[in-house]
Nucleic acid binder design. Structure first.
Ligand code: FES
Ligand code: FES
Lengths: 168, 168
DNA sequence: TAGAACTCGGATAAAGACTGTCCGAGATCA
DNA sequence: TGATCTCGGACAGTCTTTATCCGAGTTCTA
């Protein structure tokens, strides 16, 4: 690990990247795709990716199908799944900034009866998080697939579909 | 720990809250304030708060003064210090979403020569983080102090100044 | 209808980050 | 000169994240 990487503190689980790419891949297949196939395609540990897919299943984003022809598939059209849903399913739906109410502690503690409204600092942090969430809510899995396809001059998604069909 | 707290995944260090409140407090004092005094006022572990104040010192937000009348003081007027600077100093200045470039792995790996531009997914996540950062960049420590004062009907900051002077 | 193979699902260890604490180096004042 | 107070980085404990495994359930085949 390089020095630069060590200075950077990781705040979001790296599984978010795998989950988003997996959703984009699933949007290109009409049939269920096994977790092991997705892991091979993305070069990730199979068992760990499966754990994240389970989280997506609990969130209602994907549906699992057991058996020989089983696997994972999207429950809704890709245009109706926002990136925010995927991130929240993996990383947790709680706020990143958690107010401990330290204003109610110490010699100058504010009485609880005056703390009906959140602290001004907590309000500012919550507003920033809302802006972050809104930016992600406006992007759908279909948008991401289209952009990746455009970056590859319209060859990437077709290659994915071909690979999925060939190794079925 | 309650069940609700366990469901919420903590992504941001809670030291961010202590640092922001400490900066607001420091903005109300013309003289250096020792870390132990700030810890007593906020009801936090003294040694751990000191560690975070050291991080603020490295970032150039506060200046430390050793000796009997030493302590911490802001290096600039509170109106020129953004909340984003404080958050970045404590939680790290790296992006929360870290792209691992998984598109360059696996059987359908994209050649590196085609990866000059970041992945579309990474771009969307970066745009969301920019929105978050912009919201925090527009808020200064002086703004937060004014809002906390307004919430307390103009008594909070005066009480802080009085307490700091009385216990000097 | 019985069998076999393939899949998901949760339960189980190892690693790293955050939390919390300590004592020494340095500076100021008497 | 000495004492006292301050910061600063170095030291353990706890929790989340990472990674992995084997059993339960389902589907196709003979
Ligand atoms: S008391 Fe939690 S942010 Fe002010
Ligand atoms: S390769 Fe990292 S987000 Fe697409």
């Amino acid at each position: 690990m390089s020095e630069l990487d060590r200075l950077v503190i990781m705040k979001l689980s790296n599984g978010v990247e795998w989950a988003l790419h997996s959703c984009v891949t699933l949007s290109q297949s009409r049939e269920p795709v096994p977790a092991a196939r997705l892991a091979e395609l993305h070069g990730t540990p199979p068992a760990y990716l499966a754990k994240h897919l389970q989280a997506l299943s609990r969130a209602g984003i994907v549906r699992s199908r057991a058996g020989q022809v089983g696997g994972y598939e999207l429950t809704r059209p890709a245009a109706q799944i926002s990136a925010l849903e995927v991130v929240r399913a993996i990383d947790g739906d709680g706020p990143a900034y958690r107010c401990t109410e330290i204003r109610q502690r110490g010699p100058l503690a504010v009485p609880a009866e005056r703390c009906e409204r959140p602290c001004a600092i907590a309000r500012a942090m919550a507003a920033a998080e809302d802006a972050w969430a809104d930016a992600l809510r406006r992007v759908t899995i279909a948008d991401l697939a289209a952009r990746i396809d455009a970056d590859s001059e319209g060859t990437a998604m077709a290659a994915v579909s071909r690979w999925l069909a060939a190794t079925r």
